[in-house]
């Protein structure tokens, strides 16, 4: 991880300031370098972050389930370990449920769940990052990022997405068993390095899921996807996610991301 942190930080500074990188510089990037920068831009902005996340799980026929939560994130290391603390507001019967994730790119996550009805903290063995995140079309991996080195990346072409210049990258898992997809195409914004669109193909080669960043804006100078959709084109099910009240660099303490706080979340985690 460490080996690319330094050059990347150098690259990210102008980005964070909203400066356009020179196109010549961009063209010399390889597929893998683009994906590394994209991973940092999407999953690691700021030292920490807080957001009110609203997820709408929508069936093909328009049936809807709501997941509303406050999400806290803290980077321990840029491009490396992260901690997530999630407090559920809705659905009503899971209010006060809390969820703690210690994410590590190279090994299984550690997850703990507080079940208020039983007043019980339960450790969740998380040996599958591909499983669904709270029943949505996003997997844990989609929410917290997949290790860039698990796939081999190829820059296919450059094209515009909604008027924005983008790199088109093809990613193929090095170990087919490590992913649900057989192939992924990503359209990476040349300016923000945020993925504007992603297409996941199943192992048979059929399109299975489509991600789109529907609203991308700068918050405290950091590019942030505030509205996104993941659609399962095979089932017609989709999940729409809105990030509200996004704040970066709150100087969240490490202690907050411990089992102790699951039962009694601090006010800043709840609001």
């Amino acid at each position: 991880m460490r080996k690319f942190v330094t050059p990347l930080t150098v690259l990210l500074v102008p980005l964070a300031l909203g400066l356009r990188p020179s196109p010549v510089g961009a063209q010399t990037l390889s597929g893998e370098e683009i994906m590394k920068r994209s991973s940092l831009a999407e999953f690691y902005p700021g030292d920490d972050m807080k957001a009110r996340v609203l997820m709408r799980l929508i069936t093909k026929d328009g049936g809807e389930r709501i997941r509303e939560m406050t999400m806290l994130r803290k980077n321990l290391q840029e491009g490396g370990d992260q901690r997530y603390f999630i407090y559920f507001h809705r659905p009503a019967d899971v209010r006060e449920m809390t969820f703690l994730i210690w994410k590590s790119p190279r090994k299984d996550d550690d997850r703990w769940l507080f079940i208020p009805a039983l007043k019980l903290v339960k450790r969740i063995a998380a040996n599958d990052k591909r499983s669904s995140f709270v029943g949505s079309d996003f997997s844990y991996e989609d929410v917290s990022g997949r290790d860039v080195e698990e796939d081999s990346h190829k820059l296919l072409r450059e094209e515009k997405v909604d008027g924005k210049d983008a790199f088109v990258i093809e990613s193929v898992p090095k170990d087919p068993a490590s992913a649900d997809f057989g192939k992924k195409l990503s359209w990476i914004d040349k300016v923000s390095f945020i993925p504007l669109k992603e297409e996941y193909y199943d192992r048979r080669g059929d399109l299975s899921r489509v991600f789109s960043a529907d609203e991308v804006k700068q918050v405290q100078g950091l590019w942030t996807i505030t509205k996104r959709t993941m659609k399962n084109v095979q089932t017609g099910h989709r999940t729409e996610v809105t990030f509200q009240e996004v704040k970066y660099n709150l100087k969240l303490s490490d202690a907050l991301f411990t089992e102790r706080y699951l039962k009694n979340p601090p006010p800043e985690a709840v609001r």
Partner: peptide
């Protein structure tokens, strides 16, 4: 079957959040 509705609600949420949602 638990005696309280919120327990059942949280169980089902847990199941839908951990397994394949379609199973539920």
């Amino acid at each position: 079957i638990p005696d309280a509705q919120d327990v059942i609600g949280q169980y089902l949420f847990l199941f839908a959040s951990s397994a394949k949602p379609r199973d539920l």
